[in-house]
Design a protein around this nucleic acid. Structure first.
Lengths: 205, 205
DNA sequence: TAATATAGATTGAACGTTCATTCTATAATG
DNA sequence: CATTATAGAATGAACGTTCAATCTATATTA
């Protein structure tokens, strides 16, 4: 709508500041959790005053919601990418290492766990998380269904849904594993995961 | 040393009170998280004054640590139980339903996620959690190793460790799944899990 | 047994601090 | 000059924790 974009400011200036606050807040949340982090801490990390934060976010919860939404958008992208592969089974087995690596990164895992824990009790955050999860499940179910049908298997929708949940549990479970066992052998996990995914997608009734 | 035990009080009175506080606190923590719960809330839920809480716990973190320790002791018991089964593979497949049910209970899952999220940033809680996890892994590794050797397989320790991590990730991952997808089809998950566990324990190089 | 002493359980108010949020004033921008 | 960005002080509520006081019940004494 706005025409004058001579300067990079205009609309983008505000978004830059918002991103700056998001990044600083995410850092704080990783270290101290949502409710262990104060606005004062966030403002310090972002290099601005406390009052200024409220110029860009209505309140603390809005910052949390923004980070959650941004984070979930990223994971939706990852899930959708799989569908474009020519041989889905091979692609999933091959890319298992990426999924394992991604979910085992402790700082990422910490924030993700904070988000789910918050979703377990905060209806507003739960809504955002569940909508994103629904989209991810749908995408993954499509991917698996296509692959199974192409291989000549006949599965009920419940079976497909069960496979989706099992795969999701495996990868998301790694976020818990990396906290509970920081010395976990990543290579060994990748090897076992590959075999399990292969077997799951090839299984006959 | 003390002889007079006419009344059930003496030493047990204090433990009763501690248990009462633990239960009330766990309830609050489930609903509002560790750092979203105030001592005032806990004291109200436990039906006693705020000051009285400090008669039994040094501070808020001590209550958290106590609940965490108690919770982890229970999961260690569950893991150890498996070892006594005659046919471990059958037992694991048969008892998959219990593991799935247990980890899918939303109120249990919520507190467990709160604990892991706290462990991700609080070294004291991390220490408790990791010690318990080490014990569980050891027990599960023994169980799997025995079963695999009995079936004539030759696995490296890394492979056994990978299997342990995969199984742990699957079941613990369900805690995340039940929050992100409350409508999850439990029966479908049980069926897929059974097959996956069977295949994992029977797999050949 | 009646009277007193003592220990521990329990209370709720008070403390100093920190919190999220709002208000006010100044600087930068266009 | 008008608007927006920014800073920082101000506000009142809520926090974890402490503490002096009271209540309850058992033990001691006479």
């Amino acid at each position: 709508m706005s025409v004058t974009l001579d300067h990079p400011s205009e609309a983008s200036r505000a978004e830059t500041r918002r991103a700056q606050i998001r990044a600083a807040a995410a850092d704080c949340f990783r270290q101290h959790g949502f409710h262990g982090t104060s606005i004062a801490q966030i403002s310090k990390a972002a290099g601005m005053s406390t009052g200024h934060i409220y110029h860009y976010f209505e309140n603390k919860e809005a910052i949390i919601a923004d980070i959650v939404a941004q984070d979930l958008e990223r994971s939706l992208t990852l899930t959708t990418e799989l569908r474009s592969a020519s041989d889905v089974k091979d692609a999933m087995v091959e890319r298992a290492i990426e999924g394992v690596e991604h979910n085992l990164d402790p700082s990422s895992a910490g924030l993700q766990l904070e988000i789910v824990a918050e979703a377990a009790r905060n209806p507003h955050i739960a809504e955002i998380v569940r909508a994103a999860d629904r989209a991810c499940r749908g995408s993954l179910a499509d991917t698996i269904r296509t692959q199974r049908q192409a291989a000549g298997h006949q599965d009920s929708e419940a079976t497909i849904a069960g496979m989706v949940e099992a795969l999701a549990a495996m990868f998301e479970g790694l976020r818990i594993r990396t906290i509970r066992n920081p010395d976990l052998d990543q290579a060994a996990v990748v090897q076992v995961f590959r075999r399990m995914i292969h077997d799951l997608l090839s299984q006959t009734p």
